[in-house]
Nucleic acid binder design. Structure first.
Lengths: 147, 147
DNA sequence: GCATATTAGTTACAATTGAAACTAAATTCA
DNA sequence: TGAATTTAGTTTCAATTGTAACTAATATGC
C-alpha cells in the first residue's frame, strides 16, 4: 500500500533535509566563531588535512561541493595563510593544494572537535543502528549515482 | 575503539549532508523548471495543500524554515496567484492562507511527482531499512532538540 | 600540425538567504 | 485601565550561493 498523500513530515527527502541542516548548523557553530571558518572552508581543510596535494577539482569530486564554492574557499584559505598552492608541473591548469603549518594547526584543533560532536551524536543510536545508517547512506548514494 | 582520525568520507554529518543535498537537488530539478517554483514555495504549497487555512507562522513551525523565508515564499505565491490570504477575524496579526484553484492544481501535479521520486528512491532500501531510517532520523532529531 | 573540444579554475552577476530592526496587533500584569 | 511585553509578519541589509560566461591550458581528431 503505497502512499497517495504527500505529508511533508513523513516525506523522506524533506525529513533528511531538516535533520541534516540541524546537524550541520550545530556542528559549524562549534568552530565557525572560534576559528572564523565557514563550512566550505572547513571541508577543504578536512580534505587536505588527510590528503595533501589534492587539486581544487579533486576536492570538488570528493566533497560534492560546487566548484565555485571550492574555488572561493581555497582563495579565502590562501588569503588567511592556511594553505598554499603550487602549480602542477605536468598540467599547468591545476594547482596542488597543501595546508600550511597554520592550516595544519587549525585542522588538528577542529578535527577532534568534529569527532567529538559525531561521537556525541551517535550516543543516541545503537551500534547496530549506526552501522545500518552507514549502509543506508551508501545505498542512497548509489541510487543517486545512477540517476 | 573510537575514531581518532577525521576521515571526511566516513564522517556522519558530512555524509548526511552530501547525500541529502544530492537528493534535494535532484528532487527540486523535477519541479523547479516545470513550475517556476523554488523549494520554500513548494514547501508552503505542500503544507497548505494538506492543511488549508494555516497561518504563515503555522507553516514556520511545521516546516523548520525561517520565518523570513516563509514570509517571502507566501508573498511570491500570492503574487503568482497560487494562494490568497484572509485576515483572521479574531487576531488581526494573522492571515489565514489557502491555495487558489491554480495553487491546488500545482499541488495536485507536484505531489505525485514528489511521491514518485521518493518511491523510486526507496526501491534501493528494504522495507526494514526504510523503517530503520525513519526511526534513526527521529532519534537524531531528538538529540538535536536537546542540544 | 592545427582547429576544435574539453578541462581547471576564476570572475561577474543575480538570486537566495538569514540576522536584526521594525510595525502593528494582542496579551500580561500591576 | 494602561504601560510593558510578546507575537505575527515584513522590510532592510549584508553575506552566501550558484549559473553563466570567461581565461588559460591540455587533449582530440582530421
Amino acid at each position: 500500500m503505497a502512499k497517495t498523500t504527500l505529508q511533508l513530515d513523513r516525506f523522506l527527502p524533506y525529513r533528511l533535509s531538516v535533520v541534516t541542516n540541524r546537524i550541520s548548523g550545530a556542528l559549524s557553530r562549534h568552530y565557525a566563531d572560534r576559528f572564523g571558518i565557514g563550512i566550505p572552508e572547513w571541508r577543504v581543510i578536512a580534505n587536505l588535512g588527510r590528503t595533501p596535494g589534492l587539486t581544487a577539482n579533486d576536492v570538488v569530486e570528493r566533497s560534492a561541493m560546487d566548484k565555485v564554492t571550492v574555488s572561493r574557499a581555497v582563495a579565502a584559505l590562501e588569503h588567511k595563510g592556511l594553505l598554499s598552492r603550487e602549480r602542477d608541473a605536468g598540467d599547468k591548469r591545476k594547482s596542488r593544494l597543501t595546508l600550511s603549518a597554520k592550516g595544519q594547526t587549525v585542522y588538528a584543533e577542529i578535527a577532534p572537535l568534529a569527532l567529538g560532536f559525531e561521537r556525541d551524536l551517535l550516543t543516541v543510536l545503537t551500534a547496530d543502528e549506526a552501522a545500518q545508517l552507514d549502509r543506508i547512506i551508501d545505498k542512497l548514494n548509489g541510487k543517486m549515482d545512477s540517476l
